[in-house]
Amino acid sequence: MKKITILLLAVLIFYVPCMTAYAETPEQKGATISAAVPATHVITFISSGGRIEDVDSTVGGHKEYGRRSEQPFHIIPDDGKEIDKVLYGGEDVTSKVKDGYFTTPPLVADMVFEVIYRDIPVEPVSEPSETPSVHQPSDSPAKTGDTEQAAVLIIAVLLMVFSAALIMKCKNIAN
């Protein structure tokens, strides 16, 4: 009996691969492509020399914001500092900062927001000179005192001309 079983199995093994090799009828198979779009994105902040309102850490701080939201940020430099450059996602957006405010375009990916500050230049204080200069540079605006002096001078000249004319008139009448 065992021999018969072995023989039948041998016949079956020999027969089955021949069946599966035929493939003349069309066949269909599918493959799925999938993707996920996150609901939030992270902005990382770098702001050494000032702070960005609503952000705690000046360096490496980060916050999550909703996808496609436009976020306004107020940049507040430390005392003696001013904004030098603002980079958003590596792009220089300094020209888009108005009165210290910058609003991001719709957020569609994680971003880095970096503000670079510089020292406000100190203007040299000119000491008052002991001998006041007589001549003003041509390009400097006239001061109030100088205007008054000129007016007095003109009035004096006019008075002198008027007086001379009056004297001449009196002499003519006397003659």
Binding site: P26, G30, T32, I33, A35, A36, V37, A39, P106
Partner: peptide
């Protein structure tokens, strides 16, 4: 996928099936 299409996409999970038809 073009970057503009990613940027315009709403948040969520997406999928699609591509079918392969094999014929002799």
């Amino acid at each position: 996928i073009a970057q503009a299409d990613w940027d315009a996409a709403a948040a969520g999970d997406y999928s699609d099936t591509v079918t392969f038809n094999i014929a002799y």
